[in-house]
Design a protein around this nucleic acid. Structure first.
Lengths: 192, 192
DNA sequence: TATAAACAAGGTCATTTGACCATAATTTAC
DNA sequence: GTAAATTATGGTCAAATGACCTTGTTTATA
């Protein structure tokens, strides 16, 4: 049904072939153009999304128009606004495609049923939550303690595969520094 | 056995009296002096900790001696270094008492058994994880997008009960601003 | 209660950072 | 393939922030 996703489950989980097609069959497939959104601020996050290919971002826009990025979601990752999804309350963030992307989406009730019926899927979900928790505190610590240059170097080490796919302004919006500062850092690194 | 904690479970969960004493009986009680630690950076986090009374902080110290705070844990909250606990790997943070405190601690294997045997405890744990996840992204967004003054105001709104219990330098270390900036903000607010 | 330690606040100064603007290069979209 | 949009970079400047130091106050502890 969705061969890429089924391979993902095969390699990342212990789901049986039957369970895999059960999970896969509940998904709806969607193609996203560049800048197309799967969630708008103010709306309720009704789906979990798996990225087959492409690249998405979770971000919020301030009143002054500046953008701040909470997460990038490349191929083989999941995304949603977890607070809006959990509480079924309006979201404060947007989720949009940076590159043309292909995604699978499950609505909440379907996915909850799958979690109950497929214990190994629940295990995967818990593992993903744990990874996210671990990374969140690391990121918070870096954000609090590192200089802009250290933040950028940490980013390049952690996401080497994203570097060339992101405009610098989005890296800056993720690190919480200005584009000016980021270009200054890169300039300094060149002449070193 | 630990009446304060048992009341906490009674009011926050659906655990039966029998389950409550089961959970409670596996805890070890500990009294902490001010500045006493339950976890040192470099050590492995072997316990989950519930704070009966007092106030703890999770923090990391940089090479230059500066301190950055990841979380405060007042009475009726839980704390640990979740990454170190999950992976049983050396921690990068310290957990210490800001005030004289009383805590309960469970070691990992005991707590895992409780989670399996007491489904409502697992529910509580998942709820706490969800709360933590939600707050983490809100905090990250504030950290990325807010001015120092907005960060401080957000803190006062969110943790009014902690304000008077914390030295300003710790609030600054939590917000990622300097003590100087924080005192400037407070001074400006006075004369307004 | 006395002594030491921790803390808040203020002064000064250097510097990093961001805002604003212009330009050039690259990428996107039709 | 061409026009339009987005993007990266650099210049200039002002302002916010932090580093360092001192002082007075509060808090802990023995």
């Amino acid at each position: 049904m969705h061969p890429h996703f089924e391979t993902y489950l095969q390699t990342q989980t212990t789901l049986t072939a039957n369970e895999i097609s059960q999970v896969s069959s509940m998904a709806s497939f969607r193609i996203l153009k560049r800048n197309e959104s799967v969630l708008f601020a103010g709306d309720i996050c009704k789906h979990k999304t798996f990225v087959i290919s492409g690249l998405l971002r979770n971000y919020s826009t301030s009143v002054d128009g500046s953008e701040h990025i909470l997460r990038f979601s490349p191929e083989n990752s999941w995304t949603l606004d977890v607070e809006s999804y959990d509480k079924q309350a309006p979201s404060v963030i947007n989720i949009s495609a940076i590159e043309p992307s292909q995604v699978l989406m499950w609505n909440k009730t379907d996915f909850q049923n799958l979690l109950v019926n497929v214990p190994a899927l629940k295990q995967l979900a818990e593992q993903l939550i744990a990874n996210n928790t671990h990374y969140s505190s690391q990121r918070m610590l870096t954000t609090l303690s590192a200089s802009p240059e250290e933040k950028y170097e940490d980013f390049t080490r952690r996401f080497p595969n994203l570097l060339a796919r992101l405009p610098l302004r989005m890296i800056a919006a993720y690190l919480g520094i200005s584009l000016k500062t980021l270009t200054r850092i890169r300039h300094a690194q060149l002449t070193r």
